[in-house]
Design a protein around this nucleic acid. Sequence first.
DNA 1: GACGGTAGGTGTACGCAGTACACTTGTCAA
DNA 2: TTGACAAGTGTACTGCGTACACCTACCGTC
Lengths: 242, 242
Amino acid sequence: MTQQVEAARRVPLSRDRVLAAAVELADEVGIEALSMRRLAQELGVVPMALYKHVANKEELLNGMVDAIVAEIDPAVRDAGWKRTVRLRVLSARRALLQHRWARRVLESRTNTTPAVLGYMDSFMGMFLAGGFSVNLTHHVMHALGSRMWGFTQELFDDPANENFSDMAPEAQAAMFREMAERYPNILKVATAASHDGGSVVGQGCDDQFEFEFALDLLLDGFERLHEQGWTSEKRADGAPRE
Amino acid sequence: MTQQVEAARRVPLSRDRVLAAAVELADEVGIEALSMRRLAQELGVVPMALYKHVANKEELLNGMVDAIVAEIDPAVRDAGWKRTVRLRVLSARRALLQHRWARRVLESRTNTTPAVLGYMDSFMGMFLAGGFSVNLTHHVMHALGSRMWGFTQELFDDPANENFSDMAPEAQAAMFREMAERYPNILKVATAASHDGGSVVGQGCDDQFEFEFALDLLLDGFERLHEQGWTSEKRADGAPRE
DNA sequence: GACGGTAGGTGTACGCAGTACACTTGTCAA
DNA sequence: TTGACAAGTGTACTGCGTACACCTACCGTC
């Protein structure tokens, strides 16, 4: 009887439910704390039960990535390639930023999933529809690289900075002096960037601005190449490289 | 007696020896197969012996990164910022390519090591010495991002492609047909890129060329901004963004 | 209504990981 | 000779992913 009640109360597992729970758990506790055991516990189930719905942990991670990719808005229509690409990337960025672990997982994936391929395919489609040659589209995709997903490798992830504000003032000062001596340029750049608030080193910068800055730099470059009919076939023409 | 002989034969461990062995082992078996136990075994020592020379595995990985960073050539002198930066990045690329695991480990580091900070500092120094404003240098560093290390997120890491050539011909054809239907743009771009050899999907592209293409695109963009005295302070001037 | 297949959940167990902690041993200065 | 200290050892713990055998509730078929 109590068993029946329990069974009735328990919503049966499904692949989607497992994936959704995994995404939620990763959001909460971070990707490194996401284990099959922990996830099972969260679902009120024994670890091995998960394996009826996902083949293994790799496949779980793939599914999680797919779930995030599905959150990216489709391409807008009739807006010109540049604007279309820009909006799409920023949409991807929004999706990935809501799940801080997604970047890491996406990059660590060794087997590309259909959803990822689909995104890449439609991404290339935006350039082709904009009149880009297949050749230029190819190089452009490489040049964008992971920026297609809306993220950049963060520079100042944490230069021993996380607990900087927790440190005693004199310790802060000492660290500051040491930085000034050993990494004068970093200090110069970082303090200039944070004049308007934030901590002393890094984090003072507006990530969104930095991202858009780089994105637009690339898009402008693409535009220029496109307009002048650039092709990699010309590369044997002897421009000096080393 | 035999103990003495053995003791004499055994070169004592040291942090450097541990790190060197770790780098070598990772080169051989890959980073995911590098465990403290395996490394200890390779050194003919019990696992816990390593902990007399590195605090823990994180610290071991940090040390390995530092070892690779030390392989990057110093900046050349008096060559102009653009050439200097270009050569430096390509040198970093060479170092990182010799250790395929290095990219992954570098990106996964959460505490920046002194060697990494040093590289970044000298990197900024190249722009500053070239007359770049502190402000522009800052944004330029962000725009470069991980390309500063000579790598890009690889696009076509392996679209189920690794064992493509091992597949039966008719299976290859079927896959080809499926790709054509579901990912027409990818197929178009990929086949165009590999017309001169390599497999059907990806891998046909010249990674070095792709990298330099993107790098030069960015450097040219930086140059243009530098010449026109660009500053992020101007960003409030109403250029439309969304 | 009995019955056998099947999907979904369980329990136990294995090997591997990182590493805490208490120990021996080898070396050298006093 | 001693005794401190650095280097290496042994044992053990916890947590991980997951193989494999098992149970059980539900289903359509007879």
